[in-house]
């Protein structure tokens, strides 16, 4: 598999060539590392949610930095709906091997036993079962008391009000009206047995920050973020990648080919591509800077209704 960027090696001779991070990204990096260390020290059994996307890639990079020269001291958990892009799964396994990570994957058995698919159950119910419910199953099975996630406050209105340590009940519920106050960078990690915390080291990052950091740190990404000639079908106003044999064409649909890429990555039937000629990181960033729509616009699950993210989060979604 071809990875677009060469991994930066801190022990190679050309390390001097790497320019220092600008103060803005450095401040964000320092804050994220601080959060990683605090959670790892305060909780008995942390885990990192790894979704393979660009935010997760940044999160993983920061985790490696936070605990260097040690290895990442907690497992990575991937909730595999079974409908991810094939390139994502290949990339995930490559990263786990390359960085000596403990990778845990979980798929809700109801997917197979009850035949839950994004085509048959609709995006809302499908997401509830294969993502939210699956996540609760995996967190319970692992007995994790803290879970890192890559959510950013600039992504969505309800996230703008979420704490960096987001307290969850034993049922994984988030109560937005009853959050613990969070002052300075002093985090309250005290919980009872069964309760847990979701920790968000990237809370204060914006989408532009993520891309600029990927560029500055040479962080490897799933190639789907870069434009290439790919097959797709148009459905419900979205361009869906047409590589997986499980995608059945509806009457009137045809497979087309064109230069496309993805701004976010999720389940392939629910993630829309954009037309793009940006085949390099520089070109992707240049496109982003003149973008007039937000990144989540391509995600079907966020569009069901305003407040849908808050509803999902209350039920235990990340």
């Amino acid at each position: 598999m071809h990875i677009h960027t060469s991994e930066y090696d801190p022990h190679s001779k050309d390390q001097i060539a790497k320019p220092p991070l600008d103060p803005h990204l450095k401040a964000l990096e320092n804050e994220a590392i601080h959060i990683f260390r605090e959670v790892a020290a305060e909780f008995d059994k942390p885990v990192m949610l790894y979704s393979i996307g660009k935010d997760s890639s940044v999160l993983l990079h920061l985790a490696r930095k936070a605990f260097f020269p040690g290895r990442v001291p907690f497992p990575l958990l991937h909730i595999d709906t079974g409908w991810k892009f094939a390139e994502m799964i290949a990339f995930r396994d490559l990263m786990a091997e390359k960085y000596d990570l403990d990778l845990v994957t979980h798929t809700n058995p109801r997917g197979k036993s009850e035949g839950v698919t994004p085509f048959t159950h609709g995006s809302a119910l499908y997401t509830d079962i294969m993502k939210t419910e699956a996540l609760r199953q995996a967190l319970d099975a692992g007995g994790y008391d803290a879970a890192f996630g890559g959510a950013r406050r600039d992504e969505e209105a309800s996230r703008a009000k979420e704490r960096i340590y987001s307290f969850r009940t034993p049922e994984h519920r988030w109560d937005p009206r009853n959050q613990r106050p969070e002052l300075w960078n002093i985090y309250n990690g005290m919980i009872r047995k069964g309760e847990s915390v979701r920790a968000f080291p990237l809370s204060n990052w914006t989408e532009v920050d993520i891309w600029r950091y990927i560029q500055a740190e040479n962080i490897p990404l799933v190639p789907l973020y870069y434009a290439a000639e790919r097959p797709y079908v148009e459905r419900d106003g979205m361009m869906i990648l047409a590589e997986d044999p499980r995608l059945e064409l509806l009457p009137g649909e045809t497979v087309q080919h064109g230069m496309i890429r993805f701004r976010t990555l999720g389940c392939f039937p629910l993630t829309g591509a954009i037309r793009s000629t940006a085949t390099t990181l520089d070109a992707v960033i240049a496109e982003l800077e003149i973008a007039t729509v937000s990144e989540r616009q391509g995600r079907a699950i966020d569009r069901d209704q305003s407040g849908s993210m808050e509803k999902k989060k209350r039920e235990g979604y990340f």
Binding site: R153, D154, E156, A157, S158, A160, K161, T206, S306
Partner: peptide
């Protein structure tokens, strides 16, 4: 006002962070 209750009641409940 990002939370459902805020939209419904026309009030601001909590600290929000903007970028």
């Amino acid at each position: 006002d990002g939370l459902q209750a805020e939209r419904e009641q026309g009030i601001t409940i909590d600290v929000a962070y903007r970028y």
